[in-house]
C-alpha cells in the first residue's frame, strides 16, 4: 500500500488491483486532527458559556430589558444537557477556561495551516474554485452525483468534488475566521487594542450574535462532514486522514467519460 499502482491491464473479468493515491499532505492531516479536538471543545464549552445568558441581541448593547432577536431560554433543558456542554454541569468559569485556551489553538492553528497550505500549494491545487465549477449546471450535476452517493470523479479520484470543495472553502475561509474575529470582538481588552474590530461587526452584541450563527454553521458542517465520511467509506477515509494515503473504493465498471469534471493534475 505504499506506491500508487496503476490498474492492471488484465482481462475484464479479473478484479482490478486497489488504487492508492497520496491524498492529504502532512499539514492538512495534523491540522485536521488538532481541529477535530479543538472544535469539539469549543462547541461544548461555547454552549456552556451561552447558557449563562441564552439571549442574543443586535447592536452595541443588549441585556434583559432589551429586545432579543433570539431567546433560547425555552431550550435550556437541552442546552444544559450534560452530554452537550463542557464541563457537564453548568460552570461558567470552567467553560471559559476551556474556551479561551483552545481559542488560541484554533486561531494560531488556522494561521499556521494557512501558511503551510500556501507553501505546499494545497489551497491553490485542491481548494481553488474555478468559475465553471460554480455554474448552475455543474452544481446540479454534482448534487445529483451526491444523491447517487457517487463522490469521486473516476478520472481524478483524489480531487474534491465541487460541493465538497465549497464546504471546505466556507469552513476554512469564512466560518472559522468569523468565529475568531467575532470572538476577539467580544473581549473588552481587544476592543481597546483594536477598536476597528467592534466597528467591523457593528457592536459587541452583534459580534456575539454572529459568533453564534457562525458556530451553528460549523455544527452543520461537522454533521454533514461526518455523515459523508460514513457514506463514502469511513475506514478508508479516516485511514487516509491519518496516513495521507487513500485507497480508492472499488470503481464501478468504467463508463464512457461523458461527465468529465476536472482535468487530472499531477499527483504527488
Amino acid at each position: 500500500m505504499d506506491e500508487p499502482t496503476a490498474p492492471a491491464d488484465s482481462p475484464v473479468a479479473r478484479p482490478i488491483a486497489p488504487i492508492v493515491v497520496y491524498r492529504h499532505r502532512l499539514a492538512t492531516r495534523i491540522w485536521h486532527w488538532i481541529n477535530a479536538i479543538t472544535i469539539f471543545i469549543m462547541i461544548g464549552s461555547g454552549i456552556g458559556i451561552l447558557n449563562a445568558h441564552p439571549r442574543l441581541y443586535w447592536g452595541q448593547y443588549g441585556a434583559n430589558f432589551d429586545h432579543a432577536w433570539l431567546d433560547l431560554r425555552p431550550y435550556s433543558d437541552i442546552l444544559r444537557s450534560g452530554w452537550l456542554t463542557i464541563p457537564a454541569g453548568y460552570n461558567l468559569a470552567i467553560s471559559r477556561r476551556w474556551h479561551l485556551l483552545f481559542a488560541l489553538v484554533l486561531g494560531f492553528g488556522l494561521l499556521v495551516f494557512m501558511i503551510a497550505s500556501l507553501i505546499n500549494r494545497h489551497f491553490q491545487r485542491d481548494l481553488r474554485v474555478r468559475a465553471r465549477e460554480i455554474g448552475p449546471r455543474h452544481l446540479w450535476a454534482d448534487l445529483l452525483a451526491h444523491l447517487r452517493f457517487d463522490f469521486h470523479n473516476p478520472e481524478d479520484p483524489a480531487a474534491y468534488n465541487t460541493l465538497q470543495k465549497l464546504a471546505y472553502v466556507v469552513a476554512i475561509f469564512v466560518l472559522i475566521p468569523l468565529m475568531i474575529f467575532t470572538g476577539l470582538a467580544m473581549s473588552p481588552g481587544m476592543d481597546a487594542a483594536w477598536p476597528w474590530l467592534i466597528e467591523l461587526f457593528g457592536g459587541r452584541q452583534s459580534a456575539r450574535s454572529i459568533h453564534f450563527i457562525a458556530a451553528s454553521g460549523i455544527v452543520l458542517f461537522v454533521i454533514v462532514h461526518l455523515t459523508l465520511v460514513v457514506l463514502a467509506g469511513p475506514i478508508e477515509e479516516v485511514w487516509s486522514m491519518i496516513t495521507g494515503r487513500w485507497t480508492l473504493p472499488a470503481a464501478p465498471p468504467p463508463e464512457p467519460a461523458a461527465t468529465s469534471r476536472a482535468e487530472p493534475e499531477a499527483a504527488e
Binding site: Y61, D66, L104, G189, D191, A193
Partner: peptide, 29 residues
Amino acid sequence: GEKINMGLQRALMDRNALAPEFTPDQMSP
C-alpha cells in the same frame, strides 16, 4: 490560558489604549 491571553493582549495593546466610548443616544435605556 489566562496568562497567555493576558500576555498577548498586553503585547498588542498600548498601555493607555482606550476602551470604546459612546454618545448619549447609544446608552442602554
